[in-house]
């Protein structure tokens, strides 16, 4: 075990921690994105609320989510540690340093980008995660026709501490499925009516894009998976998936709500 401790306190070991937590967070982003696509579904948030319930109450996912929180914290803490060490490694700064001549802007500004993301995560989790878990949110009652699943009647049910977060009852006689869930969708909808809040999200997603363009491929380099044959693939994923697709899709959500809901 002391060997592990030694490894992870070495400069390479710390970087490995960054890389592994980083890649884990990247995979989470994909899952998160796929889930959030439910927001675009025109069902008054029924699917989204069901998804929110699933994500917070299915045990294996819950375990993973705690890992996720830990990863965010470890990723940030190690970044701080590494940055502090790096500052110490150059106590006297250059009067002139032409970093733009030899490296990409993103690679030199991971700390700033990461800080923006951390602030964003705190705001984001406070507004949605915390509210979902702790706030006295109203419920949405969905009456879904069994004949036509697109026929959904929605109504609000006030907060009740005794009510389950999510319940489904099939009323065969009425020909309806009645779903009552804590209405996170509403929270989302309300939140994204404010222009500056939408702007914050868009900015954060831009930061995410730049953070991941460097971060994703950098993680592979750190782990040592730098194989000339597969490097182009890693670069491609870095730029097109994590640099463009994922952040744009995320940013599209607040914009969509702001403009259309």
């Amino acid at each position: 075990m002391s060997n592990f401790a030694k490894t992870f306190s070495s400069s390479l070991g710390k970087k490995l921690v960054m890389a592994l937590t980083g890649i884990f967070l990247c995979t989470f982003l994909i899952v998160h994105l796929v889930g959030n696509l439910q927001l675009f579904k025109d069902d008054a948030g029924q699917a989204f609320n069901a998804y929110a319930y699933f994500m917070t109450h299915f045990t294996p996912i819950k375990v993973v989510s705690y890992l996720l929180y830990a990863s965010i914290i470890v990723h940030a803490l190690y970044a701080l540690m590494i940055t502090a060490g790096n500052k110490k490694a150059r106590p006297v700064a250059y009067a002139m340093q032409a970093g733009n001549q030899n490296s990409a802007w993103t690679s030199r500004n991971m700390g700033i980008l990461g800080t923006i993301l951390l602030i964003f995560i705190v705001v984001h989790m406070g507004d949605f995660w915390w509210k979902y878990h702790n706030a006295e949110l109203p419920y949405a009652k969905y009456e879904i026709s069994l004949d036509n699943p697109n026929d959904i009647q929605v109504s609000e049910v006030p907060y009740d501490a005794n009510r389950l977060v999510h319940s489904e009852v099939v009323d065969i006689q009425a020909g309806k499925k009645i779903v009552i869930s804590k209405d996170l969708y509403k929270v989302v909808q309300n939140a994204f009516q404010t222009w500056w809040y939408v702007a914050l999200y868009v900015i954060a997603m831009a930061a995410l894009a730049f953070h991941l363009i460097h971060g994703f491929k950098s993680a592979f380099q750190t782990i040592g998976w730098n194989n000339n044959r597969y490097l182009p693939l890693v670069r491609f994923i870095s730029v097109w998936i994590f640099g463009l697709l994922v952040p744009i899709a995320f940013a599209a959500m607040p914009v969509y709500f702001f403009l259309f809901k």
Binding site: S10, S11, K88, A89, N102, S103, M110, H214, Q221
Partner: peptide
Amino acid sequence: MVAQMDAEGFGSCTNTGACEAE
């Protein structure tokens, strides 16, 4: 070699690639 590198007080690599470029 890595242990000695760390002991000398060099910083950590953040894969900027500036070293390779210069």
